[in-house]
Design a protein around this nucleic acid. Structure first.
Lengths: 225, 225
DNA sequence: TTTCCACAGATTGTCGACAATCAGGATTCG
DNA sequence: CGAATCCTGATTGTCGACAATCTGTGGAAA
């Protein structure tokens, strides 16, 4: 699992994870008000730990707070997502370039196997794309891990990753790009295997631009309604 | 001021800002344990708001927490800073490229005046470089603002910016690179004025690489002792 | 002397209650 | 009839006390 699992944690940590999950999956709507007493009740804890969790989530920009008026789930409008994809392009592009020099042969081979599993899954169940979306994030995160840059892993693995997942859950019911995406993934792995960082970066940037192109259009149509 | 000013805020927000400031300026040493009761006493508030502040700071990665063992100030070792500068290079490079197409002529002119003030300040007081360091961050942040990318502004303006300032306070007592840095800044402004995004990006990346080169050496020497 | 255990002090985690502030509706005055 | 005002219910902000957990110190047994 990509989300850290709260084993023997504090209540506030549990609340943080549960809230983050609910926000990302859309169970809590964007912009929805978060009532402390109600949530504390639902999670079976006092308001103290819950407030700490909200503060934590505020720090990672999943919720917005205004003093004396409570916390609300962040809203991902078109501009925000556009900014997000631009940042991703720069960051994951760099991650790709570095990963080409840092990943072990074995890691790259694992990446290839991951794509094999994706392909099998796509052929078997054309409809259920949720798994593919999560798998896509897996792919991207493995490459970021390959860059050996902890800060990058934090940025893309914790914060932006959550926003991306939010975006996925919001748009997954519509269009799919699994076919071309998988092929692009394969090209990237090939470039990594050849240790061609520059090419890997270019392919990754193009891949993310393409993803934004398709998602941006979808959102535009959605907002028109 | 680049740091948001707590006007009529909650106690937890005040604590967040005071702690962030103390951490960034080095008043609180890296890795130092943060005792809740002691800090609450010093700030004249209960432990509740202080704990919320710690959770907020944890969210923005200025402190590290381990359950039942308290919070500690984050430590910036050589590897972390190296990662930070790599991320900055990608992010600010992109910001520069976009800013070249988005900034108004007036904003670019303001940028030039900012550098004039820096130059005057450097000539007047060769020693007091703290102001120049803050000014340098101002310069970088203005360009990020010019990219009109809110997420970029958040990333570089809030979180990484704090880590950078920490780094500055730690290393400012040693070497200076104000001369070459200023000249590179001027080149960047010139590229922006010509609306040459590609060149601006290249110059910015080179500028940040140079900064890392000099700071990395300094840290290596420091760690040897 | 060394190692293990138990105890005490300190620190963190949690809860419930109270104060401060805000939102919405009824009331009253122009 | 409309707008400003006050009141009331609800929600957030804060505090103090108590429970759970960790740390390190001292003593007893091998």
């Amino acid at each position: 699992m990509l989300i850290s699992t709260p084993k023997q944690d504090t209540l506030a940590d549990i609340a943080t994870h549960r809230l983050a999950h609910s926000i990302v999956t859309g169970e809590l709507e964007q912009g929805q008000k978060l009532n402390e007493a109600e949530l504390a009740e639902r999670f079976g804890m006092g308001r103290g730990p819950l407030r700490e969790a909200l503060r934590h989530l505020e720090g990672m920009r999943l919720v917005t707070r205004v003093p004396n008026a409570g916390a609300r789930v962040v809203v991902l409008d078109r501009k925000t997502l556009s900014d997000l994809y631009a940042v991703r392009e720069a960051l994951e592009g760099m991650a790709c370039r570095i990963a080409a020099t840092q990943m072990t042969d074995d890691e790259i081979a694992q990446l290839g196997k991951l794509l094999d599993r994706h392909e099998a899954q796509i052929k078997k169940q054309g409809g259920k794309v949720y798994a593919q979306s999560e798998g896509d994030l897996d792919f991207h995160f493995q490459i970021v891990r390959g860059s050996r840059n902890q800060m990058l892993m934090n940025l893309l693995g914790s914060e932006q990753y959550q926003l991306l997942r939010m975006c996925r859950y919001r748009t997954s019911r519509n269009a799919q790009r699994t076919g071309p995406a998988l092929q692009q993934h394969r090209q990237i792995v090939a470039a990594l295997a050849q240790r061609d960082g520059e090419l890997a970066e270019i392919l990754m940037r193009r891949h993310i631009q393409g993803a934004w192109h398709s998602i941006g259009e979808m959102i535009a149509k959605e907002e028109a309604a």
